[in-house]
Design a protein around this nucleic acid. Sequence first.
DNA 1: CGCCTGCGCTGCACTGAGTGCCATCAGACC
DNA 2: GGTCTGATGGCACTCAGTGCAGCGCAGGCG
Lengths: 228, 228
Amino acid sequence: MSAKPPMREALVAAAFQLFLERGYEQTTVDDIVALAGVGRRSFFRYFPSKEDVVFPDHERCLADMTAFLSTGGEDDEPVERVCDAARLVLRMYAENPAFSVQRYRLTRKVPGLRAYELSVVWRYERALAEYLRGRFAGRRDGTLRADVIAAAVVAAHNNALRSWLRSDGKGDATAAVDHALGLVQATFAGGPTPPVDERPEDVVVVVSRRGAPLWRVVQEIETTLGRD
Amino acid sequence: MSAKPPMREALVAAAFQLFLERGYEQTTVDDIVALAGVGRRSFFRYFPSKEDVVFPDHERCLADMTAFLSTGGEDDEPVERVCDAARLVLRMYAENPAFSVQRYRLTRKVPGLRAYELSVVWRYERALAEYLRGRFAGRRDGTLRADVIAAAVVAAHNNALRSWLRSDGKGDATAAVDHALGLVQATFAGGPTPPVDERPEDVVVVVSRRGAPLWRVVQEIETTLGRD
DNA sequence: CGCCTGCGCTGCACTGAGTGCCATCAGACC
DNA sequence: GGTCTGATGGCACTCAGTGCAGCGCAGGCG
């Protein structure tokens, strides 16, 4: 497609062809470069490790996410913002459904690739958590809330993403992720309460409690409002 | 100390001595076995990889956790139960504060060890999520909720654990983890609402809403109750 | 007592990932 | 044409991890 680096694409194509027909571990880097017709040294110029060739676009996506989080959006609800950031990842997967499904099957079978994927996901989660830490700075349990919410967002996103990948990319990935993130948002959005005089008067609440824990109260609210 | 396997302990001791004095990557397996006075092949008999020697007890701890989750507790609140399971991990760390702090410093510096730790943590998280999936079977969004809650529990636990490790194991790890898990429990416990006729009447709620989203209502409840 | 057998340890040779170094070659630029 | 630069290829090396064969040492058995 492009002029400069057909090298990268050629290596990815050769790698996946071999991975699919004889498996990841049964394929050596020498096999890949032989099929691609390039020198072995060039492989490691483009991919720091054999695992990296399986995730050729995550580096760019992670850069996109940090860029997204570091530009503007200071007025938005923080949880909403990290949910939108997570949707960037979904978009990357959805751009190449066939490729994503193939990769998913590979990572499911090969423990080494699963471990590598974990470190990739971890970097996304750290980016989200760092952003939330900034937004929650000074609040009580700010970093704790940031870490928990980031983990919840990633888990929800991955749950929906994986269920879509498991169905061979047939269903509506966006809807599934929206639903999953909606649950997280309903759980966490709002977060720490702003000062009294900045609160909009959109809610009036009267509560009578008889020694119930907070979660029981919340549960009752949800039921009263007919939500899940 | 013990009769049968001083080997394992000798290898761990030799490994950490070298890791601390010249770094993980600057230490080869040959260095370790030379210091321990054993054959190179024996190292890989006890530890499938060089990274494993850094986490010598996680395998046992993971087995403890799955055993804990698979025996009884069917009457307990599911979220409470996975929180208790997470406390098992904390206990393991707290048993050897000095060792845990040393290991923490290592894993922070060495990317390869961080990646390995992620795969360990992932197995804990999977164990918790699988348990919750079982408990939530049949409920709406059961697996999604299970995954999200498991991720939140792990994130909260790790947040508290790491802050304790960062302070050289000086503070009260148990209290910190209890507080962190308490926040998760307050957020998630109760989970899907049980049928109406099984609900205890410990809460009476009157809500008047004027187009507010759920999170605003919850926020107001929290403020009304004077909680965070 | 001597032998056998199984088990744990060792040494050795081998594969394959990843790295450092230098030669080479193409195109840009003067 | 000459030169400079950046991308590539080749080569040799380190080191993690594995398969295999031998070796020593226990305990069981005749």
